[in-house]
Design a protein around this nucleic acid. Structure first.
Lengths: 250, 250
DNA sequence: CGCTTAGTTGAGTTCGTTCAACGACTGTGG
DNA sequence: CCACAGTCGTTGAACGAACTCAACTAAGCG
């Protein structure tokens, strides 16, 4: 298991943050931008498979994903793992650890990931002096809550086939909004990740994904899922989608 | 289905808020208290079974539960229902609707519920002028996220027996921290609620709860669950508990 | 070249489902 | 006052979805 390493060589200036070019994200005011640039203390790079945060840790940092894919998960004592959600560019991670003292979940990279690092002790300044950014953080937390609600609905009440279709459609929609796909839509997850997200066994997950593949909704190759028909997946899941709202990030 | 009704006759003054007497909640400063008293625009009472908020609604209000039990849920088109979490005194509801424009879930009362009503349009003032309260709202949102993470772990990876034990232990622990129980610990839910929370059928839920009853961990009578052995339930679930941290409320 | 990881498939078993029926209790209208 | 319908909890029987076990392919890597 690799560990994240600091990137001393390069720090993306917030003024030229690549995320700001994406239509899905809201604009910063000059004032906000100036503060965020000071708030950011560095950058971190993690290899695919690296653990970015561990359950139980008292992290002094808060991160925003700059690029790459990862996931949040929890485990039971005997090793059963549940993936809670996926993290993608613009997502804030470590808020729980910052606010409540201790991480209640772990975060692992699915692909090479780069992260902006923020200092926990400057967070109070953000709340004191930049209420619009404070509101943004609440917005992000409320959005995460909404996604978890949808996941809970899926795992609790959808059939295995609907669940699988929902998950892939969800990841596809998020990736699309973030302009992560070029010619074809490839999601860097294994079937084991899908199983641990849906609460299914790996064998049954495989058979379920095969059914979706047979309907020409997706294709599985080389440890990635290629989406062929996003709308078809949404229809198979009976899922409305996330909406196209402009969202904040820090 | 009854609808909530405003209580014109009586408004609990924030200075004598009954929640403030509970050890689990943090103290307000005089300044904070003064603002919250102005922020609160009224009170609402809902009967057991009443719908407090509906999915899709654009609510102009934010609520804090003063007393009573309720639950948040989502449904699929064909009526399948998933209970996402339970709401209890001190919980903030309607934040999603306030922040993102539209409620993504519904809220229903399990017992008679009384609610403090806050005006959405004063929320920005809270963020501008009272950053400690803004931080509290983020704290509450992060805490809800943590609970949802645990529910997700349960539904996804625990067995039916563990799941049921976890849910009852969770509700018991929350009620205990809020001092909702007097002589015996009674949770006002039906087995249908348990089923819709755990993602199980009502029949299998009944058989599972019977097993817990046979172990003298709980007893079911008159549409309530009486907890006999909270620690036994936690052990049966393999669950650590929530911790006894002092928490904020608005 | 063996070793590991990811994906695939079949067979048998277990867990949770649906269907069905029933008792206890509550509220309601005749 | 009783008859009736509705809700909640309970239980048995049969079915089906998802599980475990097992064996096998294909690809990547030291």
């Amino acid at each position: 298991m690799a560990t994240p390493r600091p990137t001393h060589s390069f720090k993306t200036p917030c003024e030229r943050c690549p995320l700001r070019a994406i239509a899905a994200f809201r604009e910063f005011s000059g004032d906000e931008l100036e503060f965020v640039a000071k708030f950011k203390s560095g950058e971190l790079a993690a290899d695919a498979g690296a653990t970015i945060l561990v359950e139980g840790a008292h992290s002094a940092h808060l991160f925003t994903v700059l690029s790459g894919w990862g996931f949040r998960y929890k485990t039971l004592e005997d090793g059963r793992r549940q993936i809670l959600n996926y993290v993608m560019p613009g997502d804030l991670i470590g808020l729980q650890g910052t606010i409540m003292g201790e991480m209640q979940h772990s975060v692992e990279a699915l692909s090479p990931v780069s992260l902006c690092v923020f200092e926990r002790n400057k967070l109070m300044t953000l709340y004191n002096k930049h209420s619009s950014l404070a509101f943004d953080i609440t917005w992000i937390a409320a959005q995460e809550e909404r996604i978890l609600d949808e996941h809970l609905l899926s795992i609790g009440r959808r059939t295995a086939l609907e669940r699988a279709a929902y998950l892939i459609a969800f990841l596809f929609e998020r990736g699309r909004q973030l302009k992560l796909f070029t010619s074809h839509a490839s999601i860097p997850i294994t079937q084991q990740h899908v199983a641990d997200t849906l609460g299914l066994s790996i064998v049954h997950t495989n058979k379920t994904l095969k059914k979706l593949a047979n309907r020409n909704l997706l294709r599985w190759q080389e440890r990635t899922c290629e989406v062929l028909d996003g709308d078809g997946l949404k229809a198979a899941a009976g899922w409305e989608g996330l909406g196209e709202k402009v969202r904040p990030f820090i």
